[in-house]
Amino acid sequence: MQARTARIWSVIHTWTSLISTVFLLLLCLTGLPLIFHHEIDDALGYSPQADVRPAGAAKLSLDEISRAALADHPGNVMLYMGWDKDEPWMVSTFTNKTVTSDPQTTVVKALDAYTAKPVGLLGTGPMLVMLRLHTDMYLGLPGKWFMGLMGFVFMIAIVSGVVLYWPFTRRLDFAAIRRKKSRRVWWLDWHNLLGVVTVVWALVVGGTGVLNAYAELLLGVWQRNELTAIAAPYAGQPTPTTLASLDTVLGNAMKATPGMEPAFIAFPGTPFTSTHHFAVFLRGDTPLTSRLVKPVLLDGETGAVSSTSDLPVCLKAVLVSQPLHFGDYGGMPLKIIWALLTVFTIIVLGSGLYLYIARRRKQRRPARVTPDAAGIAQVSR
């Protein structure tokens, strides 16, 4: 019975690994530079740089910054306005032809909060290429869902590998590498060792990757439930054409959530709010609460607070998992650890593919027949 169970788990491990290997290699190879995307952007000159300003200068109003963002793109509308907690002098703006236009045509700018001068275009450079390959392979939402599926298959491969590890290595010392055996056995020992070393990390990164891949689905559930209930009194009404002052909107939102700072503002009609409301998302000031946001919905025409509520647990999990996926919680030491574990995972994936090919070749190779064996076979006929 145990032998049969082991064979079943072996089949599961073999095929889930084979199905996901190519895509997991792509994720690892693109994810490795993304761990250091801030540092790479800085080195290549793609990071926004603070503008020179006179001493004692005051920040401009949000409405002035909004007008500056739209000045070079007549006919566009604002979608989002956001703030980086590490760059308080900078405001990020997102504009497009309409709130329902193709997201790939969105213009993302970084503006100086004191002068409203552009200090760089966000989402450009080689790291953007790596990010698109990593998240959706330039296939949009279907690509994200497919990569999420591959991440789920990879997690099954990890679990099945853990189940198989003990039966296949119980007679060996932990971390034993049989150097005097064949090359295939040598690679098998390294495959098992690095697989065990990275198992917890791989489950964490794989799980967070799957969660992020289906973030749009979770956001859709929140829209259909909570946002629909909040926007019910405005059902049938058109999107406001005259919007409240952004400074009024942000001021009212911060009064409703004391002790928090703004993360971003979503304009009416965007996916993070209803067609009639601004949504101001605010965050805390600790390493954990700075990753979690609290939405405040405000009337698009008056700026009055309509609702304050917490995000559902599933969306909170997405927000917490995003920096964990790339090791952004612990500074450079954690990034280096994440990078080393990624390299180990690449070796595990490559060695697993080699072991499968080597085993198939061995199975197809005809058995050698010695003269003695041939004679015995002749006598036995």
Rank of each mutant, 00 (worst) to 15 (best):
A3Y: 07
R7G: 01
V11W: 15
T16S: 15
T16D: 10
S20H: 04
L25N: 00
L27Y: 02
G31Y: 08
P33G: 00
P33D: 03
L34G: 05
I35Y: 01
S47E: 13
P48S: 11
A50I: 05
A50N: 02
R53P: 00
P54Y: 00
A57C: 00
S61M: 03
D63P: 06
E64M: 02
I65V: 13
S66M: 11
R67H: 10
A71W: 02
A71H: 11
V77D: 06
Y80C: 06
G82T: 03
D86P: 05
E87G: 00
P88F: 09
W89N: 12
T93Q: 08
K97Q: 13
Q104A: 15
V108Y: 14
A113C: 01
G125M: 06
M127Q: 13
L139Q: 10
G140S: 08
G140D: 06
G140R: 08
P142E: 10
F146Q: 03
F146H: 01
L149I: 11
M150T: 08
G151E: 04
G151F: 02
F152N: 03
I158T: 11
S160P: 06
S160G: 10
G161H: 01
Y165S: 05
L172A: 09
A175E: 03
S182D: 05
R184T: 04
D189G: 14
H191S: 09
G195M: 13
T198W: 05
V200D: 13
V200Y: 12
G207K: 13
G207S: 15
N212H: 08
A213G: 14
A215N: 10
E216Q: 14
V221H: 10
W222K: 12
A229I: 03
A232M: 07
A232Y: 00
Y234I: 01
Q237P: 00
P238I: 07
P240A: 06
A244I: 02
L246N: 05
D247F: 03
A253K: 04
S274W: 10
H276Q: 15
H276M: 10
R283T: 11
D285G: 09
L292I: 14
V296S: 11
V296Y: 02
L298Y: 11
L298C: 10
D299F: 02
G303F: 05
S307K: 15
S307Q: 14
S309W: 04
L311G: 08
K316W: 07
A317G: 12
L319S: 09
S321R: 06
L324R: 10
L324Y: 09
Y329V: 07
M332C: 01
M332Y: 06
L341T: 04
T342S: 15
G350L: 15
G350M: 13
G350K: 04
Y354K: 07
L355W: 03
Y356Q: 06
R365W: 01
P371R: 09
A373W: 03
G375H: 05
G375R: 12
Q378E: 13
V379C: 04
V379M: 12
R381V: 11
R381G: 10
